[in-house]
């Protein structure tokens, strides 16, 4: 219901018609480069500079999945849970250090 209402509101705003709307001509469509015109498409095999970082990110994302249930039972389990997650985070921290040494966080 909320999704529906919000999406409808946003869609209505997005599709509001301007009283000045007119067919858009070709020269109006040239991508904005401050005067120049590009020679090629902007879409390309884009060189993503943070590619290794995203791989590391996946490791942490997976870790989050274990953390949700862990958070719920933490107080019941007490020290044991603390130790477990402490070890897990410690290993991941070593991962960050290793990644840093390997230049994962550089814009390469």
């Amino acid at each position: 219901m909320i999704v529906l209402v919000a999406a409808t509101v946003a869609a209505l705003v997005r599709s509001a018609r301007s009283p000045f709307a007119a067919p858009i001509t070709e020269p109006q469509k040239v991508p904005f480069l401050g005067g120049g015109a590009p020679t090629t498409h902007a879409w390309q095999r884009y060189h993503v500079r943070y590619y290794p970082m995203t791989l590391l990110f996946i490791a942490f994302e997976m870790e989050m999945m274990f953390m949700y249930p862990w958070a719920v039972v933490f107080v019941e389990e007490g020290g044991k849970a603390m130790m477990e997650m402490g070890m897990f985070l410690a290993i991941l921290s070593v991962g960050i250090l290793y990644g840093w040494r390997e230049g994962v966080f550089r814009w390469q």
Partner: peptide
């Protein structure tokens, strides 16, 4: 418009697309 062509990268040597375009003279 045609597609950009590949070239080797300066930083890591990966051969991906090199996008060449004129920027300016009125870019803020």
């Amino acid at each position: 418009r045609p597609m950009a062509m590949t070239n080797d990268d300066l930083r890591d040597g990966l051969a991906l697309d090199a996008y060449t375009a004129p920027f300016g003279p009125f870019l803020p």
